[in-house]
Each structure stands twice: as C-alpha cells, then as structure tokens.
C-alpha cells in the first residue's frame, strides 16, 4: 500500500507538471487550477474528517474567512495576499477553536456534529449576506492592481495561479504526511477508532480533536485567499456555500477518506466532470450539480471507502499476476 501511494503521488505530480504548460487554453488552465484547489481542500478536510473521524460540513466557512480576510485587507490597505493569508489563517483558526470547543466540549458526536457544523456555516452565510461591511449579498470585488503582479498576486493569465496552487498543494501534502506519521497523526486515528479507549491511553481527546480541527482550518483558509485572488470576486454564495462544503467532502471521500492522496484522485474526477458538463451542457441548467449529486450517491453505495482502495486492489492483483509469472520463469 505504501509503495503504491508513493508511486501514485510521483506519477500524479509528474503528470501535472508536464500538463500545465502543454495546453494553452485558458479554460483548461482554469479547470486545472480548480483541480489543484479542490485536491488541496480535500487534503485539508481529510486531516479532520478522514483521520480524526470528525466529518464536518463547516469547511466552506474557513474558505470564506480566508477569502474575505484577504480581500478586505487588500481593498482597505492593499496588503499583499502573501501576508494577509496568514491573518486569514489566524481568523479561521480562532473560529475553528470557538466552534470546536463548543461542539467537542459539549460532546457533540455523529449526527449532532454534522448538524452543528452545518448550522455554523449557514449562520455565517446569513450573517455575511446581511453585513454591509463585507459587501452583503453582492460580495466583494478585488480591485485590479496591475503594477506588481507578483506582489499583489494578480496575473494576466491563469498559468501563474496554477503554479502557486501546485506549490501550496505540494507543501500541504508534505506537511500532512509529516503530521500523519507523527504522534499527532496516531492520536487522530486513535480518536477516530475509539474515543473512550483513547482516553484510557492518556489521550486528551478534546484537545486533539481541537488541534485537528484547527490544523484543518488553517490549511483550508489559505486556499480561500488563493481562490479570492484567482477569481477576483467573492460572495457568500460562492465561498460560504453549502455546495462548496459538499464538494470538499466529496473530493476526500470519493478518492478515499483518511488516505491524503485520495483527494488528488477525487479532485481529478470531480472537477473536470463538473466543469465539462457545465461547459458542454450550459451553466444555467444545473446539470453539473445533477452530475455531482448522482456521483455522490453512486460512490457512496459502490465505493464507500473511496476509489484509492479500488486502485490498490487492482495494483495488488497486477503485482500478484506479475509475481506468479516470475515464479514460473525461475
């Protein structure tokens, strides 16, 4: 399994690097950016949902907080997103600490945690929709500032955004792997497996659930900043939507929750599928979301453990066939 994951990641990364410059269509690059963006969000969600077992529907709120914080700081003071994203992280982590403390302190689990997490997201969306400071329902436009593209993260084409997103994704995967293989990761998995047993082994389950949520929120928030500067326009309907949360979850679950690399597979399937349905069948028809909805049901029924497990199975079968041949040869 480990070898497969290693190979898979290398192959995927190599493919992505070679793909980006090859195809000069702006639409393609937009899609590629979204693939990387959702893969990144999926990995971030996976730390909490997949490893710690706390399936959350609140994650769009962290995307929104990152996006709004950076957009506002840019509009007010032209603060570069490279700095403001860390302020966004701070805001998101504080929010995560607040909701995490409330939910976990009061022992919300299972269904109740889903409901609470979605309630926090919806409450935030309604509040932002009615809050003039953050642009209300119409949202915020990031003003054009073409004087220094790298400083303000405002480029003509989409290509630089793809590279930036890719770098962030690679760093994130590197860090997530480190976390998963450390004490922290083991504790997260222990909590997912059995909270009472974890407590009996000296694990402060409240603390580590909080840590997991905060780490996940911090990663997620950065993607919000990048997305805001990629599209140049944010609104409650785009960065605080329940559909965004569901997309993040599907990316992680489709590929395989609790695997990190599953999110790459998930994003590579979900994003092109949705983008191209939209492109070919019209954006206003809702067909892309029909596809998404069907996909969720299909995957949930057929591969509840994600596609990465399926790939692993195929890989092992292939290896066994190969091994068999080798035996015959010798």
């Amino acid at each position: 399994m480990i070898t497969l994951k290693k190979h898979l990641s290398k192959v995927l990364i190599a493919v992505m690097f070679s793909l980006i410059p090859l195809y000069p269509s702006p639409y393609f690059r937009r899609t590629l950016f979204l693939v990387l963006y959702f893969a990144y969000l999926g990995v971030a969600w996976d730390i909490l949902g997949g490893y710690t077992g706390q399936g959350s529907f609140v994650h769009a709120a962290f995307v929104g907080l990152g996006a709004y914080t950076s957009a506002l700081l840019f509009i007010w003071w032209r603060l570069t997103p490279y700095i403001s994203m860390f302020i966004g992280v701070l805001v998101s982590v504080l929010f995560a600490a607040l909701i995490g403390y409330l939910c976990f302190r009061f022992g919300l689990r299972g269904h109740f945690f889903f409901l609470a997490s979605i309630a926090f997201l919806v409450a935030m969306r309604y509040s932002f929709t009615n809050w003039d400071l953050v642009g209300g329902a119409t949202g915020l436009i990031i003003p054009l500032e073409s004087s220094n593209p790298w400083l303000y993260m405002q480029f003509e084409g989409k290509l630089p955004y793809c590279y930036i997103m890719l770098v962030f994704l690679l760093i994130e995967i590197y860090l997530a792997e480190k976390i998963v293989k450390s004490k922290l990761g083991y504790y997260f998995i222990a909590i997912k497996e059995d909270e009472l047993a974890s407590e009996s082994l000296g694990i402060n389950t409240l603390k580590y659930k909080l840590v997991s949520l905060m780490v996940s929120a911090a990663f997620t928030s950065m993607a919000g900043t990048l997305y805001a500067f990629f599209v140049g326009y944010i609104a409650p309907e785009t960065v605080l939507s329940d559909i965004l949360t569901v997309q993040i979850v599907i990316v992680a679950v489709l590929g395989g929750a609790g695997t990190i690399y599953g999110s790459l597979i998930g994003a590579f399937i979900m994003v092109p599928l949705m983008e191209y349905t939209r492109a070919f069948l019209g954006a206003r028809s809702g067909l892309d979301l029909i596809v998404l909805g069907s996909l969720i049901i299909l995957i949930g029924v057929l591969y509840p453990h994600g596609l990465i497990r399926l790939l692993e199975k195929i890989y092992w079968r292939l290896r066994m066939v190969k091994g068999g041949r080798n035996e015959k040869c010798s």
């Binding site: 559909i243 569901v246 979850v249 029909i290 909805g293 996909l295 049901i297």
Partner: peptide, 13 residues
C-alpha cells in the same frame, strides 16, 4: 448522511 446530501443536490437541480 453524505448520500442523502447527494440526493438533495440531485433533486434540487
């Protein structure tokens, strides 16, 4: 839960 969310998206759209 996730599957019923899929149904939500499907029917709504």
């Amino acid at each position: 839960t996730f599957i019923t969310f899929g149904l939500l998206l499907l029917l709504q759209n």
